[in-house]
């Protein structure tokens, strides 16, 4: 029997009378690359916000590694192994690239180490690890370089690296490929496959079907706050409900592997 890292059970959420999520239930298998797709306004980002603790669900439960996350504040979820990126890049504009990445380590740092000056302790402070991780993903930077000077694709990648620095067991990615060109998307896909090989479960929202098809093995589809499909990505194009409600025609689902 497969093991589930994340279980969503009957999640409902509304904003000012508008039901954004209605009884959403699905499981994310440990080690899988799971996509969450659906038209704009389907409730995908809201669901991410519920999982990461920004919003409390009105009904339903989020189980992470078998434990109910109710009452666990958003700040503490990263300590449990739940890390995420954002739909719009949310790197800290006044921090250098390295500092942004090191911020990702915050949840793993001992209280005493919080008081050590970073510039004099390249190894023990996690700085070395941050530099190595950036390098291993092909990001080599000039000292102190700020985030705003970098191209969009690299910033997107840095956000993922920052989320990875917490050493999560589940990584939530909100539209990681949005705004990337074909070459960048391909690089991102290889990068995320590498992340997945390192044993991290991925749950990602994206609109780029070729990207999702070539990366993910499981998919959940949402429409108007409800789950309309949940299963292997290979079966997706045979599901009539999905075709009618979301994609309109079969062609959109096929997407080459670029």
């Amino acid at each position: 029997m497969s093991e589930f890292i994340l279980k969503l059970s009957n999640i409902s959420k509304s904003f000012g009378g508008v039901k954004v999520l209605e009884n959403v239930s699905f499981d994310v298998e440990k080690g899988s690359r799971h996509a969450l797709i659906g038209p704009n306004g389907a409730g995908k980002t809201t669901l991410f916000n519920v999982i990461s603790g920004i919003h409390d669900p009105e009904k339903g439960t989020v189980y992470f590694k078998g434990k109910d996350l109710r009452g666990v504040p958003s700040r503490k979820r990263i300590h449990k192994g739940l890390s995420r990126s954002f739909q719009n890049i949310r790197l800290m504009p006044h921090l250098s690239v390295l500092e942004n990445v090191m911020l990702g380590q915050h949840s793993r740092i001992d209280f005493v180490d919080m008081f050590k000056p970073l510039d004099f302790l390249s190894k023990s402070s996690g700085k070395g690890e941050a530099i190595e991780t950036l390098k291993s993903f092909g990001i080599d930077l000039h000292k102190g370089q700020t985030v705003s000077s970098l191209p969009y694709g690299i910033r997107k990648k840095i956000e993922v690296v920052r989320a990875l620095m917490a050493k999560p067991s589940l990584l939530l990615l909100d539209e990681p490929a949005a705004g990337l060109n074909t070459a960048e998307t391909k690089k991102l896909r290889d990068f995320l496959k590498e992340v997945s090989r390192r044993g991290i479960t991925l749950l990602l929202v994206d609109h780029d079907m070729p990207f999702v098809n070539s990366l993910c093995n499981q998919v959940s589809v949402m429409n108007f706050g409800q789950l309309i499909y949940d299963g292997p990505i290979s079966e997706l194009k045979n599901d009539r409900k999905v075709l009618e409600a979301y994609l309109g025609s079969e062609n959109n689902l096929e997407g080459s592997n670029a």
Partner: peptide
């Protein structure tokens, strides 16, 4: 400085 730049993200990174 992270709290200065983006409170919500700093919180999700585990910053109190």
């Amino acid at each position: 400085r992270a709290v200065h730049d983006d409170e919500a993200v700093a919180d999700l990174m585990g910053v109190n």
